[in-house]
């Protein structure tokens, strides 16, 4: 391939420069992958959601039936409620605890590197192993309740008491908040120290400094972690599936039935591909709606350096 062929005067609007041609070649893996494994499947999934399909027999068009079934299926509101409760407990829990740890890290100098390593370490643990381990930790006579006993509290059975299954899972999820700590720590280090000094001279107390300097400066990182953690918590699967579902059902099945767990059961245990696809699109719409609201809110709260307000 030579430059001469590239710039040959093939007339009309389809003439492309050599640079554009090479750009296309470099982009090719993504274009192929996007068409075959993302865009195509999205269209297919949407189409399948209007059919009854179990792989064995050809799909049968059923119109809106799957979507209407979503309204009748009592496990849908159950799964949505469980997921919402988990997200509402998990996201603020992670944000507040991670921010507290990151702010502590900022105040201990060189030792911060060591502690940061420790906090990050659990995040490389496979979710299945986390779930398995916490079957022991959260058991009625497990080590968490033993520790609570030491300070005079009578811990619930985190694995079978319907009221305590989700708080138990949130406690488990806090063990793997390390990446959020690392992000906050990096953001906090970019806050200019002079600002705190100036604020102190002006008589601002610690809370005022935190509220008016720290928070605005790390609002970008806060916003980012809130969105990422929210989206992830709406799709919680592996840990919960390990602990409560699978070949045999656990005692707390209905209080641990999260949306993606139920979707997985419908798709790959009951082979109801049409219904599961409709469920997936409902999830997509919910995720989009929540993210859109969060982005709208962020316009009011997120401060970008150098921005005119």
């Amino acid at each position: 391939m030579t430059a001469a062929t590239a710039s040959a005067p093939s007339r009309g609007r389809w003439r492309v420069s050599e640079e554009t041609r090479w750009a296309f070649i470099f982009l090719l893996p993504w274009i192929v992958g996007f068409v075959i494994f993302t865009a195509g499947p999205m269209i297919a999934s949407f189409a399948i959601s209007f059919t009854q399909y179990n792989v064995i027999r050809p799909p049968e068009f059923v119109g809106l039936e799957n979507y209407l079934r979503l309204l009748d299926d009592r496990r849908i509101p159950l799964a949505l409620t469980n997921t919402a409760i988990y997200a509402v407990l998990h996201v603020p829990g992670v944000i507040i605890l991670a921010l507290a740890l990151a702010m502590l890290l900022l105040r201990v100098g060189r030792a911060a590197g060591f502690f940061r390593t420790i906090f990050y370490m659990p995040t490389v643990t496979p979710a299945v192993a986390v779930g398995t381990l916490f079957l022991l930790v959260l058991a009625g006579n497990g080590v968490l309740n033993q520790a609570l006993g030491v300070i005079g509290l009578n811990g619930p059975n985190w694995l079978s008491d319907p009221d305590w299954v989700k708080p138990g899972l949130v406690i488990m999820s806090l063990w793997t908040l390390g990446s959020t700590v690392v992000i906050y720590f990096a953001a906090l280090r970019n806050v200019p120290l002079e600002l705190y000094e100036a604020a102190r001279i002006d008589g601002a107390n610690s809370w005022q400094q935190f509220r008016n300097i720290t928070i605005p400066f790390i609002s970008g990182a806060l916003f980012f972690t809130i969105i990422v953690n929210t989206i992830a918590s709406l799709q919680i699967f592996a840990e919960v599936f390990t602990m409560f579902f699978g070949a045999r059902s656990g005692p707390a099945q209905s209080s641990a039935l999260f949306y993606v767990v139920y979707l997985f059961q419908k798709a790959f245990e009951d082979l109801q591909f049409g219904y599961a696809s409709a469920m997936a699109w409902l999830l997509f719409v919910i995720v989009l709606a929540i993210t859109a609201v969060q982005i709208r809110l962020s316009r009011r709260f997120v401060y970008y350096e150098g921005e005119d307000r």
């Binding site: 399948i48 799709q235 997936a280």
Partner: peptide, 23 residues
């Protein structure tokens, strides 16, 4: 095109899971 790359990160895995299995 780059916006499309970014947007594809938002897509829940569950939406394309079944067609990918079929492929």
């Amino acid at each position: 095109v780059f916006g499309l790359v970014l947007a594809s990160m938002m897509l829940p895995g569950a939406v394309i899971m079944i067609p990918n299995f079929l492929i």
